[in-house]
Simulated scan of single mutants.
Amino acid sequence: MPKVSDLFFKTAVVWFILGIGAGLQMAISGDHGSFPAHAHINLLGWVTSAIFGGYYALNPAKAERKIAMIHYGLYNVGLVIMLPALYLMLHEGYTALEPVVAAGSLMVAAAVLIFALVVFSSAGVRSASALSAATR
């Protein structure tokens, strides 16, 4: 498995554990005010990271490109900035953290655009004719 796939999958599991923890905290306390943060942790952290890992596993030539690791790093730095700030903003009422959430969100958005560039680029993709020629 390509390194970036392995990293995305491992990081996804960490986000999944954190998302479950946030859900348990809400259930135990009876305070569900931070449910949007819980949803973001699970969807952006767990699910989307696992999807990125799957894409790179299915496209190893693209996974070996430097831009794939840039995507991984920027996406996860953005999540690490955004998600705890969002949780504290919603759970504790620290509205002053809104610019931090915005900064992390912009980093995540930039990483998604990088992923789109990876997906739509033809670099690292072998044409069908090249594949059939290689198997002869």
Rank of each mutant, 00 (worst) to 15 (best):
M69Q: 05
S29E: 02
L24V: 14
V13C: 11
S29Q: 04
A123E: 14
I81S: 02
V47M: 10
I17D: 08
I70Q: 09
G124Q: 10
G54N: 11
S127N: 08
A109P: 03
L83G: 01
V80L: 15
S49W: 07
E92R: 06
R126Y: 06
I67Y: 08
L18G: 08
G78F: 12
I41Y: 07
L131E: 14
S105A: 14
S129C: 03
S132L: 07
H32V: 12
H40R: 04
V119G: 01
A85N: 04
V101M: 06
A96I: 12
Y87M: 06
H38R: 04
D31Q: 07
L43T: 02
L44Q: 11
V112K: 03
Y75R: 09
Y56M: 05
S105C: 05
E92C: 00
V77I: 15
V108I: 15
V13S: 11
L83P: 02
I41E: 04
T135M: 13
V100L: 08
D31S: 08
A50H: 06
G30S: 03
V125P: 01
M82W: 04
I41L: 15
S127H: 10
F120G: 00
V119N: 00
A102K: 05
M82Y: 00
L117D: 08
V13M: 13
Y72L: 15
I41F: 09
A110N: 06
S34M: 03
I81M: 15
D6C: 03
G19R: 10
L43K: 02
I51T: 04
P60N: 11
A85Y: 00
P60T: 13
F35R: 05
L79P: 00
A57N: 14
Y72T: 03
A116Y: 12
Y87F: 12
V77W: 11
E92G: 00
A61M: 11
